[in-house]
């Protein structure tokens, strides 16, 4: 069978079964199990309403359990066993081994660096872009352009930036923009991605480039939500544009800034594709996710690989919880 046809059948069947499940299970509950008639109509309605949420959330809970909870528990178990010993329980030996590895420490250090730089820069640039594009006639065009990298996959973006950082031997035409500029200014061509520690920042630029659009869109909406009269009051009070921005506007959208910041932080903690595609963790650019991939699927050391996965999860979880709480408070 043609794969396209297969795909279409899968989509139709999948969506149909989903709709069918919700429709018929609801019908069964209302018409057969607890019908809203007879002597116990009122009681039946109450009972049906108590069951209905579980009915509707059931599939989601099941899928989450299967694909999220089980893998987490399995990973936790793997991280405590050793493949070489046939999967025997070794306690925290994997963690101890990992903590002694320079590559792991390098990954931790780099992750922290990413954690500080990328969310800060993305949010700052996003805020700047949001404020500046709000006031100009071609602001929406500018916004679209700034937002566009969001639509590019991390790997795609990495390829684009790899070209920008590309190096040709001295004397040859530099196809990398950065080297083209560098040599035009009189420098010798550099292999940018191998220069420690600056190559880390060159990788971060890719993620900042992608995430600035996200930050800009969310912050732009927040800026528009600021009551215009508070800005006018500040004008009457004598504030200059900078004071209005930093003392009136930014404090009012602080909750949104925090949500944007933490959301980008989560992306950063999981950063993998960019490093894999551009340096594969060489020249001191290793990060946790790539380290995990390295151990798990290249060295086939599931013990240390799982241990590093657990470390990433432990780092992500508190920020995730905080983020969800902030987002909820925002919505209220």
């Amino acid at each position: 069978m043609h794969p396209v046809l297969q795909g279409m059948i899968t989509v139709v069947l999948g969506v149909g079964i989903c709709i069918g499940y919700f429709y018929f299970s609801n019908q069964f509950l209302d018409k057969v199990l607890y019908p809203a008639r007879g002597p116990n109509a009122g009681r039946n309605i109450n009972r049906a309403n108590m069951i209905r949420p579980w009915l509707f959330m059931g599939p989601a809970i099941f899928v989450l359990a299967l694909y999220l909870v089980y893998p987490v528990l399995a990973t936790l178990w793997f991280s405590l066993t050793d493949r070489d010993q046939g999967g025997a329980f070794v306690g925290l030996a994997n963690y101890r081994q990992m903590a002694a590895e320079p590559k792991f420490l390098e990954a931790i250090r780099n992750n922290m660096l990413w954690l500080v730089v990328v969310p800060a820069m993305s949010t700052a640039f996003g805020l700047l872009a949001a404020q500046l594009t709000d006031r100009i006639s071609w602001g929406n065009v500018a916004k679209s352009i700034i937002f566009m990298p969001m639509a590019i996959s991390f790997v795609g973006a990495s390829v684009i930036w790899k070209l920008i950082y590309d190096t040709r031997p001295a004397g040859a035409d530099q196809i990398g923009v950065l080297n083209a500029i560098w040599t035009a200014l009189g420098g010798a061509p550099q292999t940018w991605l191998t220069i420690e520690p600056w190559n880390n920042f060159l990788l971060m630029v890719v993620l900042i480039w992608i995430q600035t659009g996200f930050a800009m869109v969310i912050l732009s909406a927040a800026l528009r939500g600021i009551p215009e009269e508070t800005v006018e009051a500040a004008i009457v009070d004598g504030a200059n544009p900078f004071q209005i921005f930093f003392k009136i506007k930014v404090p009012q959208i602080m909750p949104t800034i925090v949500v944007v910041w933490t959301t980008i932080t989560l992306v950063v903690l999981k950063v993998f594709d960019i490093v894999l595609a551009m340096t594969n963790g060489q020249w001191g650019t290793q990060v946790l996710a790539n380290y995990m991939y390295d151990r798990m699927f290249r060295a086939f050391d599931w013990g240390v690989g799982s241990a590093s996965a657990i470390v990433i999860m432990l780092l992500v979880t508190p920020i995730l919880v905080w983020n969800v709480r902030n987002a909820r408070r925002e919505m209220r």
Binding site: P227, E229, T230, E232, A233, A234, V236, I248, P251, Q252, M254
Partner: peptide, 11 residues
């Protein structure tokens, strides 16, 4: 100026 919505700085 006193504004219709008061325009107090909420923060």
């Amino acid at each position: 100026m006193v504004f219709q919505s008061y325009a107090l700085y909420p923060h």
